[in-house]
């Protein structure tokens, strides 16, 4: 191979590629950033979801214990009745029925614990995020070694 061909090759490559590759790269626009922010947002979402689920579990456990039933309609009605009763029983000049409702829930809970036991509801967020961005089609497909020749 001669030096002249090498120079010609280098000139041609430079002419073609340099205008393209001389443009500055901006990390903020790069595809890998999606993976990064997806992981962060999954982390935050998981925390928020877990907190909400824990609160919901706690509330549902109280209500379920208070009503003696895991059926939301049943314990909902029972709790409503308890609230109304507490309002009726509230003495003039006093405010707040929280203590009354809590006492009701405790009483029911103690009764139900002996019958139902603790629930093992899974309160964790049920999402299954891998944090992976979808692969392009040319990576998803596995090339078959047997390629039929063109007609």
């Amino acid at each position: 191979m001669t030096a002249k061909f090498d120079h010609w090759l280098e000139d041609e490559l430079g002419r073609t590629l340099t205008p393209i590759v001389s443009q500055p790269a901006r990390p903020g626009l790069a595809r890998y950033q999606l993976t990064r922010t997806h992981r962060l947002s999954i982390g935050r979402k998981a925390v928020v979801s877990l907190a909400a689920a824990t609160m919901a579990l706690g509330a549902s456990a109280v209500l379920a214990a208070a009503s003696g039933s895991l059926n939301p309609q049943v314990w909902g009605q029972q709790v409503s009745s308890a609230v109304e009763q507490c309002k009726t029983d509230l003495q003039p000049g006093l405010h707040g029925i929280g203590a009354c409702v809590s006492a009701f829930a405790r009483r029911q809970g103690q009764q139900m614990q002996t019958q139902h036991g603790a629930n093992g509801a899974n309160g964790a967020a049920g999402q299954n995020h891998t944090g992976n961005h979808p692969s392009p089609p040319w990576l998803r497909q596995q090339a078959s070694p047997a390629v039929s020749s063109t007609p």
Binding site: I20, R31, S135
Partner: peptide, 28 residues
Amino acid sequence: YRTSYPRILGTLIGVLGDRAAAEDCAQE
């Protein structure tokens, strides 16, 4: 990324002969 992306892109353009494909591969 800032340092290497242009060179990676240049190599891929040479190998693939297609700018869009090279950019796709470079990002991947």
